[in-house]
Simulated assay, not measured.
Amino acid sequence: MTGGWDALAAELDAWSAAGQTAEVWWRDDDAGIPCPALDRLLALAAETATPLSLAVIPAKAEAALAATLDRHPAETAVLQHGAAHHNCAPPGAKKCELVDPVLLPALPEELHRCRVGLEQLFGKRFRPVMVPPWNRIAAGLRATLPSLGFEGLSTYKAREAVEPLPGLRQTNCHVDILQWRPQRRFLGTDAALALLTGHLAAKRAGVADAAEPSGILSHHQVHDEAAWDFLTALFRRLARHPAVRLLPAERVFAMSAAVAGRAVP
Rank of each mutant, 00 (worst) to 15 (best):
residue 180 W to A: 15
residue 107 L to G: 01
residue 191 A to V: 14
residue 9 A to H: 14
residue 100 D to T: 06
residue 170 Q to R: 12
residue 243 A to D: 10
residue 74 A to L: 05
residue 184 R to Y: 13
residue 218 S to A: 09
residue 3 G to P: 03
residue 23 E to F: 07
residue 31 A to N: 08
residue 260 A to N: 09
residue 162 V to N: 06
residue 10 A to Q: 14
residue 258 A to H: 14
residue 70 D to N: 15
residue 35 C to I: 06
residue 132 P to Q: 08
residue 102 V to Q: 11
residue 219 H to F: 03
residue 182 P to A: 14
residue 113 R to W: 01
residue 217 L to A: 07
residue 52 L to R: 03
residue 19 G to Q: 09
residue 265 P to A: 12
residue 204 R to C: 03
residue 108 P to D: 02
residue 4 G to W: 13
residue 184 R to E: 15
residue 183 Q to D: 15
residue 136 R to K: 11
residue 135 N to T: 06
residue 147 S to N: 12
residue 132 P to Y: 00
residue 44 L to T: 02
residue 47 E to Y: 05
residue 212 E to Y: 06
residue 200 L to R: 00
residue 137 I to P: 00
residue 241 H to N: 08
residue 251 R to F: 06
residue 89 A to H: 02
residue 84 A to W: 02
residue 18 A to E: 15
residue 223 H to Y: 02
residue 147 S to L: 09
residue 96 C to K: 07
residue 221 Q to L: 13
residue 54 L to A: 08
residue 196 L to S: 08
residue 251 R to M: 13
residue 156 Y to Q: 09
residue 262 R to I: 09
residue 54 L to W: 02
residue 234 L to N: 04
residue 63 A to D: 12
residue 244 V to Q: 10
residue 7 A to T: 10
residue 263 A to I: 11
residue 232 T to N: 10
residue 260 A to V: 13
residue 112 H to I: 00
residue 70 D to L: 14
residue 227 A to G: 11
residue 173 C to K: 05
residue 224 D to N: 04
residue 71 R to M: 14
residue 147 S to H: 09
residue 38 L to T: 13
residue 106 A to Y: 09
residue 78 V to I: 15
residue 208 A to S: 10
residue 187 L to G: 07
residue 126 F to D: 01
residue 50 T to S: 07
residue 83 A to D: 07
residue 258 A to K: 15
residue 170 Q to M: 09
residue 265 P to D: 12
residue 194 A to K: 11
residue 2 T to R: 12
residue 245 R to F: 07
residue 180 W to K: 15
residue 97 E to F: 04
residue 183 Q to R: 15
residue 7 A to F: 08
residue 107 L to W: 02
residue 26 W to E: 10
residue 77 A to W: 01
residue 96 C to D: 00
residue 135 N to V: 05
residue 50 T to V: 05
residue 255 M to V: 15
residue 53 S to G: 07
residue 206 G to W: 06
residue 100 D to C: 03
residue 236 R to F: 11
residue 245 R to Y: 09
residue 256 S to W: 14
residue 96 C to V: 04
residue 212 E to S: 08
residue 202 A to F: 12
residue 155 T to S: 13
residue 191 A to H: 14
residue 122 F to K: 07
residue 169 R to I: 11
residue 118 L to T: 00
residue 92 G to V: 00
residue 141 L to H: 00
